[in-house]
Amino acid sequence: MKSTIDTYIDEVKDEIIDIRRHLHLHPELSGEEFKTSELVLKKLEAYGIEYQTGFAGTGVLGIIKGSNPGKTVALRADMDALPIQEMNDHPYISKEDGKMHACGHDAHTSMLLGSGYALNQMREQINGIVLLVFQPAEENAPTGGSKPMMEDGVFSEYQPDVIYGQHVWPSLPVGKIGIRDKEMMGASDRFKVTVTGRGGHASMPQDGNDAIMIANQMITSLQTIISRNVNPLDSAVLTIGKIEGGYRYNVIADKVTFEGTIRTYLPEVKEKVKSRFHTVLRQTAEAFDGSVDIEYLDGYPATINTPEWAQLARNSAKYLLGEDAAPEVAPSMAGEDFARFLENYPGAFIWLGTQIENKEEQKPLHDPKFKLDERALPIGSSFLVKLAIDTLDELARR
């Protein structure tokens, strides 16, 4: 099978890279993936792949029916870009001001199209149905695109027995696949806190109530949730990423806002941190005779793989790339909308090694200078093909 997969991927490997570069040149933000969706439809038609549209606005479902009856496996790629100004110097940098594929979704889309081409050529070896899920709005946390796609009936006609997602991963070398049996990525909640005191002249603090001082106490106290309320053997992160307040050097501030994120794996840890978060803020505001308004957004749940399908994915990677292809990897606290698919269907989320040759210059995901090694793209397409066929074969054996 390896030689057959290689043959078909070789036929489109240049096109996979061309598609990725075209999408990189023309990134579209969450909910605006109209031209990206049109390109996906054009390629599916050219490859002779059946499709459905109209899911979460710009989402597309490709449908490949094998020559043999069987179960259904889904492969998902996200399509949206980020509101980031690209700062690279390669010949296909983004042409859209303030927009960039800094998370590799352009690569995800092109790899899934490449795997779709090969799978459609290999229908005789497919026992069942392969679904190609092109998802919008992954970056639009906490709403996302996976839940709206499911609400719009993306799986109403063909329901997956197993679903997989794949993400480029800059800390893994090309030719390596990152897979974990359970926790892969974290739950990602967001918050915005507005602290209100009383303004006044800096020389007469007794007449005011300094919102900056109240906010300072809150931010310091919030960190004790992680250090004193969460079991050290569990995982949780609370980060304040933005703070605004004050008018000038000699004015006591009457209002301060700060924003941040909470990341966890276990649902019970998430609920504990969330509860303590609200308690600490309200009691601190009361202690300092101020007030607080809390906007808390429950984001994506933790991305938890199904062990049996993670193991199958590991075996598929080793078959294609060698026994050392699936090294042990630590989970990430980054959030991922694919988690909502995994809440409804068994499956696994997988990292594809895309580290550039000079790893000292490798920038992380969401960086304005993020790059990936395009040699990984045909590998990613081949892996998805093997993974889909292996999964359907296993389901047929059962």
Rank of each mutant, 00 (worst) to 15 (best):
S3K: 13
T4S: 11
I5W: 03
D6G: 00
R20S: 05
R21F: 14
R21S: 13
L23E: 02
L25S: 12
L29C: 06
E32F: 08
S37Y: 07
S37R: 07
L39M: 15
L41E: 14
L41Y: 06
K42V: 06
Y47W: 02
Q52W: 03
F55T: 00
A56S: 13
G57Y: 07
G59V: 03
G62W: 09
G70R: 01
V73T: 00
D80M: 09
P83W: 12
G98M: 03
A107I: 03
H108Q: 14
M111C: 13
L112Q: 06
L113S: 05
G114R: 04
Q121R: 14
L131D: 10
L132N: 10
T143N: 12
K147P: 04
M149P: 02
E151Q: 14
G153C: 10
V154T: 09
D161Y: 03
G165D: 00
W169A: 08
S171Q: 12
G175Y: 07
E183K: 13
E183L: 03
M184I: 03
S188H: 08
S188G: 04
R190D: 12
F191S: 09
T196F: 06
G197E: 10
H201E: 09
S203I: 02
G208Y: 09
A211S: 14
I214N: 03
T220R: 10
T220L: 15
L222I: 13
I226W: 04
S227F: 11
N229H: 14
P232T: 11
D234H: 06
A236V: 10
V237D: 06
T239M: 10
K242D: 13
I243R: 04
I243K: 04
E244C: 07
I252W: 07
V256K: 03
E259S: 15
E268Q: 14
S275K: 14
L281A: 13
S291H: 06
D293L: 13
E295P: 06
L297C: 01
P301A: 08
A302F: 12
N305V: 10
P307W: 07
P307E: 06
R314C: 11
S316R: 01
A317D: 08
K318R: 15
A326R: 04
E328C: 00
A330C: 00
A330G: 03
F338L: 12
A339N: 05
R340Q: 11
R340W: 09
P346K: 03
G353H: 07
T354E: 05
T354G: 00
N358M: 02
K363Y: 11
L365Q: 09
P368W: 01
L372A: 08
D373N: 15
I379K: 01
